[in-house]
Design a protein around this nucleic acid. Structure first.
Lengths: 354, 354
DNA sequence: TCTCGCATAGCAAGCGCTTACATGATTTCG
DNA sequence: CGAAATCATGTAAGCGCTTGCTATGCGAGA
């Protein structure tokens, strides 16, 4: 195996000093045209490829951003990651993508690993920072990152920490709108399906649901609130159980996210219930599957890609500020959501078919 | 902003040399228990976080793997990426994920960037290596990577280059099986929908289709072969056009991948054609949407995650071999595919409803 | 008691790059 | 025409870490 060519090899071949090669390659300093040409020839003759590690060690930013998500095959995260990736690529940055599969310990481990990698910024999507039991540790990492010129950006909800920037989106408002839409269609008994209790995202959505009911003077029936997890599997199993028990009557379902709604569709289908004739359904997230479902799912759109892009922009801005002068301001941005009407909601009928 | 603590700071505080700190932290050399304790105390007091760049520069592998895909929000790639990410994480490696959006120039740029990053290995999924016009450039990168102790691994099809490892999967066989299934159901006029001509993947699938027809002595009607692109949009638009023209008669469709089939479903739906009563459909890839479609799509399963995992394993094996002794063997692995029967195929009827 | 060997730990070189500072060659202009 | 400014390039220090080699202190065997 050939020893990898270094800048010194290029310098020797081009008959200049390594400093000149560095200058020619970075373009940060003027270099005579003839010299540059010789250097370029040497580069391609030797197949020289710069060493990013050495460069980083010499004080150049790594041009790398980390992103920590739960699952890459989950459209929600994939779209955020896509926004991050696009915006990062646009500024010549590379993305380090880490998947926690929902394990907070993994999340912390990745946070450390990304710090070791000296990522310019790390973007945490829906982190366990909104989980009381882990928030402290995450925030400590955020501070550590911040103290050393990097930045932790949380996508999902602002944190109590000054050191962590945030790109928020409106959960309460979207849930209110979705529930209100159901109410407007005459539904009074709406099953709330999914969402672990300890994530703020879930808490906010549930709060929106309750607020919508309250705004019409409808009392919340705790039995109609079926918390637990998120996702197709949970949606299917829990709704199947509820249906099997047959005790609860409801004419509509508000699924805490689209994947949960997918599960609900299955359970409804198996129970011989038609959407929306027998039961109306709304979801949350507006991932592609929502439009593919039959009937197409009415759901709340979150600008996921935009969220990712904004996060990177925050990171870049932070980097620039930091270059100009020391700055501690970490801006938050807040994104709106909107209801997307499709075919899964119909006016409530008097009595659900049994 | 606090200067970042270095190993020297830790050493000073713990009253040892930096060499000892390094040894204590890496665990590669014995260090007295009492010393280790002092060092650990110093580390946490200072909030020391190792610098991966410095470590890499000193000759330690970066424990980083690059993966180049087209689209992170495309389930096909997402599942491969997931396999890569899982296997990488299992061996403590981080993933640099790059999306080309189908642009071969991007692909080359990422290949260079990942080489600069000194990724232990780079995994290219369905690269333009199977595109004659770019194969040369990609192979040059593969050789360059290989020459310097790294490895380029291609997922999709073996390459003519000795320097590039491959994790292949069977396109021809799957397409044969899918087509054969349709033939067994009595279909004789099968529309082949989608796939750019210049990718080997597409070529192989089309070849499988033709081979299946040939095996039953059926002549291939070139008009039934609708090439162009892949994806929902293409599937929808092309099929809509074909249907609008109304000249072609066929009783089944073989979509070159599932996303294309999704588009076909839409077009069929809009044309008032029922699946599978009027037209049978099969897809390829077996991404989750296939099971979600109504009727659920019969398709060819590719072990996507497994592909990603295997690629990483190849990389790790290469790294180990290389550690032991110089070795030039680059193994290829080949994965099978199988037909997944669902509800989108029915026996052919005499005449398609017009 | 003396020497040898082992367990620890320190010293310092070196990984490949950037850049402040120094140097020589040209040009510019009073 | 000479001093000063300008430009292109070289010199070398330093980024933070690892590790080969060396030094020290100690118990053990002779």
């Amino acid at each position: 195996m050939a020893r990898r060519a270094t800048i010194a090899d290029v310098a020797a071949l081009a008959n200049v000093s390594s400093a000149t090669v560095s200058r020619a390659l970075s373009g940060n300093y003027p270099v005579a045209e003839s010299t540059r040409a010789r250097i370029e020839a040497a580069v391609s003759e030797l197949g020289y490829v710069a060493n990013a590690q050495a460069r980083a060690l010499a004080g150049i930013p790594t041009r790398t951003v980390g992103i920590i998500i739960q699952e890459i095959v989950d459209s929600f995260y994939a779209f955020v990651a896509r926004g991050v990736e696009q915006e990062a690529a646009a500024s010549g940055r590379l993305c380090l993508v880490c998947c926690t599969h929902g394990d907070p310990r993994q999340e912390l481990a990745f946070l450390d690993l990304l710090h070791e990698q000296r990522a310019d910024a790390v973007i945490l999507v829906g982190g366990s920072i909104s989980d009381k039991r882990h928030a402290g540790e995450v925030m400590a990492r955020g501070k550590s990152l911040r103290d050393t010129g990097s930045l932790l950006i949380h996508c999902g909800r602002a944190t109590p920490s000054e050191d962590i920037a945030a790109v928020e989106y409106d959960n309460g408002g979207g849930a209110f709108a979705a529930t209100d839409h159901l109410l407007t269609n005459g539904h009074r008994r709406i099953l709330y399906l999914g969402g672990p209790k300890r994530f703020s995202t879930s808490v906010d959505r549930l709060e929106g649901y309750k607020r919508a009911l309250a705004s019409r003077g409808i009392e919340v029936d705790p039995e109609l609130i079926q918390l637990g997890a998120l996702g197709q599997r949970f949606g299917y199993e829990r709704l199947k159980a509820v249906l099997a028990e047959g005790r609860l009557d409801f004419t509509a379902i508000f699924a805490a996210n689209d994947n949960t709604a997918v599960g609900a569709y299955q359970a409804l289908d198996e129970a011989g219930l038609r959407i929306p004739e027998d039961v109306s359904v709304v979801g949350y997230d507006d991932i592609p599957v929502a439009a593919l479902l039959r009937p197409a799912l009415t759901t709340v759109n979150i600008p996921l890609e935009e969220m990712g892009r904004r996060a990177v922009r925050l990171a870049v801005a932070h980097g620039n500020e930091y270059a100009d002068a020391y700055s501690v301001s970490s801006h938050n941005v807040r994104l709106g959501t909107h209801l997307v009407l499709r075919d899964s909601v119909a006016p409530a009928r008097k009595k659900r078919r049994q």
